[in-house]
Design a protein around this nucleic acid. Sequence first.
DNA 1: AATTGGTACAACCGCGAAAGC
DNA 2: AGCTTTCGCGGTTGTACCAAT
Length: 249
Amino acid sequence: MGRSPCCEKAHTNKGAWTKEEDDRLIAYIRSHGEGCWRSLPKAAGLLRCGKSCRLRWINYLRPDLKRGNFTEEEDELIIKLHSLLGNKWSLIAGRLPGRTDNEIKNYWNTHIRRKLLNRGIDPATHRSINEAAQDTTSTISFAASAVKEEENPTTAAFGGKDAKSQVQERCPDLNLELRISPPCQNQYEPLKTGGASLCMACSLGLQTSKDCSCRVASKGSTSGSTSATGYDFLGLTSGVLDYRGLETK
DNA sequence: AATTGGTACAACCGCGAAAGC
DNA sequence: AGCTTTCGCGGTTGTACCAAT
């Protein structure tokens, strides 16, 4: 009943990729496109398993990858996204164009973890280490924005002085599993990005085209307020998390 | 110059989910 | 409906590189 191995290990190379292997993989994908990783190695004349080819392409060879150091903005965005999503590296990577999940995961483990520890923040919970030591319960936290909840009406309304929210925060037995849902536009004002209403696809970052009708309609009022990539999922790029689209079960 | 310890990152492994039959 | 195959994800490991001693 066990799974069959993804490849015949006796006849596959392992370890670092050679220039020739890279060239073969690039050439094959350029002419045939991505897909069917299992059969790709044979078709491309590579003695590698499909998984290895996929990883090499996604993490290293893809032409749209942004190589080089992470910027301070990217750092902060990763921290915010991690506080929200946890170790969902692929989701986090989806919000950072040109970055891969593997790259972000490595960067988190080598740089950001230490950076947060130096700030006195537990990288796992995003809470102050002192606070975490006193409190033996485990809670979800949006520490990065919680600091500002006093002065920020959006976060304050959601989890600030609200007694119920405080109870939830101190009671780990409550089911606080996050669920992402479309913005509730009836209950609240339309989701805005710098004053412009966006369609759901743009709000979720699924639609990045400048020509999306919602963007065309909102041109003029959005100049300079959206992120460089043209979307602002959960309001993260504005520096304030917008929790209206997030619900606890 | 050699050794050691720490860091960065590419690559591997195992698992779960989705897709296909 | 149930089984098998394939893909994608997250955790972990291996190793090259660099700085300190």
